[in-house]
Design a protein around this nucleic acid. Structure first.
Length: 416
RNA sequence: GGAGGGGUGCCGGAGUGGUUAAUCGGAGCAGACUGUAAAUCUGCCGCCCGUAAGGGCUGCGUAGGUUCGAAUCCUACCCCCUCCA
């Protein structure tokens, strides 16, 4: 915009900035800004949806600013307002601690640890008195809270809203006062909560924080925002192959969004992609492979990304057996007298249940009946199958198992 | 304080005495097609035993009861929601 130095940071992957002019002024002031980011330790796993905002934090850090990460151990205790039947159990201090730990590990895959300060809500909320609660709540009216879209919808349609849900944004806002946040980051769905922080800061004479809202990333289902509870997420801590595969499975129209929001691929290149997509002069699958590679590399390094790509090509495009497969001991190939039996009969359904390729015996039976099980490339229909050392069992498209008989191997080395 | 509505499988939501492991939709899984895309078609979709045919167990908020038989009827209890005050 006005300043080319901040062009990318203020334009790419941004849903809304409140207020942009003020934020620009702060950026130009030369002051080290306090960037606020909060999280509830109730959901420790970070997925690509979170990464959109975290990447922004990172970009600000690269300009020299400082992140203050707030561990919402108190808001998590109240329970995030979203479930109707959500019988949310109180998190134990232990769980919170563990969740926070997991979260931090993943958080610092994106955000610079050295420029981050971690604060716990309990530092201030555990001392909170009723007097302070009353003072805090007195600053807001029901009408103000009902202005929030989701509350309003629920209220209008006769759905319940609990008091603690109303308290939630106030607590989050209070955090901003304590750490004197200059900018709060969040997804566009956090707009209301962040704005409450602004109001609260003003009411105590603090300059109001700027609010930096990023778009919500659509999940692998192609419709709804990425979220763990919708099971359409791609977690940053997932296995590289898994991340790669999940990216490959996103619907095509999402490709450009993903490039923009979760990769560093330059804007010009993305513009080129768009052009190519329009004229259909690019192979979509290759573009997607590039995307998947970029994303895996970001969290697990180039080597892992290469490996995941190779795996994908091999297993899904060429339909080959992956090089490394889980192995399972196949007993009984060598009989008591030491003679080698070439094959052994095994009950395939119980075998794949034991190996964890199917959840239950019933499921295994179903898979068998549906022709989803192959042994050494041959579809299996009876439950008794002949296996030998080195046999490969394939269940569905992507579950593999290699049978190994170490006794046989030993026998062979001993007799050679 | 008063009145009313409701608790069914992962989710939504039918079902008011037997043919109900429970209609239907979504999600999920598998097969065909394929680019682990989209679209489409087909099948599956509680657990256990059985190669199979088949059998057993558990299940409609909880606990009892009526009945040859209950998600469905009765009793008590628990929980949730809405409206009025």
């Amino acid at each position: 915009m006005t300043d080319t130095r901040f062009a990318t940071i203020l334009e790419r992957g941004v849903a809304e900035i409140i207020t942009e002019a003020e934020l620009l002024r702060l950026l130009n002031s030369g002051r080290i800004l306090t960037l606020k980011q909060g999280f509830d330790p109730s959901a420790p796993d970070i997925h690509l949806g979170h990464v959109v905002g975290l990447r922004k934090l990172r970009q600000f850090q690269e300009l020299g600013h400082k992140v203050t990460l707030i561990v919402g151990d108190w808001t998590a205790r109240i329970g995030d307002p979203s479930g109707q039947s959500a019988t949310r159990h109180m998190l134990s201090p232990n769980e919170i601690e563990n969740n926070a730990q997991t979260y931090l590990e993943q958080f610092f895959k994106v955000v610079d640890k050295d420029k981050t300060e971690i604060r716990w809500q309990s530092e201030w909320f555990s001392q909170f008195t009723l007097d302070e609660v009353i003072r805090l709540t007195s600053k807001f009216t029901i009408a103000q809270l009902l202005a929030r879209e989701d509350f309003n919808k629920r209220y209008g349609s006769g759905n319940p809203i609990s008091l603690t849900e109303m308290l939630y944004p106030l607590l989050q806002g209070y955090d901003s006062i304590v750490i004197q946040a200059d900018v709060e980051f969040g997804g566009i769905d956090q707009k209301f909560n962040c704005l409450v922080g602004r109001e609260l800061q003003q009411s105590t004479g603090q300059p109001p924080q700027q609010v930096f809202l990023v778009p919500l990333l659509i999940g692998t289902d192609g419709h709804q925002k990425m979220s763990k509870s919708l099971n359409n997420q791609i977690g940053v801590a997932e296995h590289p192959r898994e991340i790669y595969g999940k990216v490959m499975s996103i619907p095509d129209p999402l490709i450009v969004d993903y490039f923009e929001l979760v990769t560093d691929v330059p804007e010009e290149e993305i513009a080129e992609f768009k052009k190519q997509l329009k004229s259909r002069s690019v192979n979509l699958m290759n573009l997607k492979k590039r995307l998947a590679h970029e994303i895996v590399r970001q969290f697990h390094g180039k080597q892992a990304a290469d490996e995941a790509q190779e795996y994908f090509t091999q297993v899904f495009q060429k339909r080959e057996i992956p090089k490394e497969t889980r192995t399972v001991e196949l007993h009984g190939v060598v009989d008591i007298s030491g003679k080698i039996e070439v094959e052994v009969q095994r009950d395939i359904t119980s075998l794949i249940v034991e190996a964890g390729l199917a959840k239950s015996r019933s499921e295994a039976n179903r898979l068998l009946a549906q022709g989803a099980i192959e042994v050494d490339g041959e579809k299996v229909s009876a439950s008794l199958v002949s296996l030998k050392d080195g046999s490969i069992i394939k269940v569905g498209k992507r579950r593999f198992l290699r049978m190994v008989d170490s006794a046989k191997r030993k026998w062979e080395t001993a007799n050679s």
